[in-house]
Design a protein around this nucleic acid. Structure first.
Lengths: 200, 200
DNA sequence: CCTTTAAGCGGACCTCGGTCCGTTTTGTTG
DNA sequence: CAACAAAACGGACCGAGGTCCGCTTAAAGG
């Protein structure tokens, strides 16, 4: 597989070409008929490639969909790791957390169907590479708040991450009609309560 | 379907009998070879019933697994709705929230594999009957804290519920080696922060 | 350029969840 | 008890994800 254990070894020429064609074909099919109708065989066919090749390259359907989101995710990552404040370094940890969540909320909302479809099975949700990068970042910011009030960084970080779960965002915005603004306010509130002093 | 829209109309005699046989067979198969190896055809066969019957009765695989958890879930529900304090009425809302989460954490841990397998697809996670009952209860308790400090009950309740997600519990306890005590402490902390005064 | 070999390829094949529809059973009504 | 409608049944059938393995081909070394 790829996203879970990024191969440092470069792909063979034909493999690289096929990979590109597959991603292109998949993106086109998703745009044309929605991610729900995307089948692995369909992608293989549209890319004029064998079905086995798709699985060899992306592991499974989820892997393919995550690959489609890879570009977006990479940009987000570099933005919050080394980009300009308040997302990147320069702002206070709390401000960065606010910005982080709001950006994630917007990004997820924009490509909600894809993020929903790319959600791995329950067991793997927390081990995908993009999740772990986000998670580690939140942990780091929580630690940087310095106020020794966050007793258990890992648990708090997971709680925060839970708020950004695409499934939850989709449910709240689509089924429950929660506005994006309300979602962002809720996020900032959650962050403030998480890093603030522990109430009596 | 059944758990999502409980049929008030009583089942026909043969249907009720088959339902019981199916649940019995499914429970036995799960105990014998684990939930991962449970196939719908296998259950049908073990219950000496047609495959279509399984789907007619339980809708899909998730429905069958949820039905297996129904008994446990029902007892939990009556416990926190009308049982003795601190889970049931009689204790303060915050105490009840503490008890609620700790009970849920324990219950989920005890039958983790089943809860994991019964987790519906992303889109349906928040609309299953058991989830909604739990969610409404948390909402009610949050409102009862009376302190007008919980600005957005629904969002806070969803955050709390996210902490109790079987997938998260499984990840923390199995992959990350987090102890049950630590999980429970984390829950109580989260509750306290959620209902406490909003920090400056 | 030839050999070699490991990565890549392709598509037949398998499994399993889910659907469909002709047949059977239940229980109600006259 | 006979007739009838509604509910239930069962298993053939379908689609899609995922596997397997014999064949092909890129690219490194002589």
């Amino acid at each position: 597989m790829e996203l879970t254990a990024p191969d440092d070894a470069p792909l063979r020429a034909d493999a690289a070409r096929n990979r590109a064609r597959l991603l292109e074909a998949a993106a086109r099919l998703v745009e044309e008929q929605g991610v729900a109708r995307l089948t692995m065989e369909g992608v293989a066919c549209a890319a004029a490639v064998g079905k086995g090749t798709v699985f060899r390259r992306f592991g499974d359907r989820t892997g393919l969909l995550m690959a489609l989101l890879d570009h977006t995710e990479q940009r987000f990552q570099t933005a919050f790791i080394s980009g300009p404040a308040p997302l990147g370094p320069g702002a206070s940890p709390v401000e960065r957390l606010h910005a982080f969540g709001c950006h994630a909320l917007r990004q997820t909302s924009e490509q909600l169907d894809l993020y929903l479809a790319a959600e791995p099975e329950a067991t793997r949700r927390f081990t995908s590479a993009p999740y772990r990068v986000r998670f580690m970042h939140v942990c780091m910011l929580l630690r940087q708040t310095g106020s020794g009030t966050v007793t258990d960084t890992e648990l708090v970080a997971q709680t925060l991450m839970g708020y950004l779960d695409p499934a939850l965002i989709g449910h709240l915005t689509r089924q429950r009609g929660v506005s994006p603004e309300r979602l962002e306010t809720g996020w900032c509130d959650l962050v403030d309560r998480s890093v603030g002093p522990r109430p009596a």
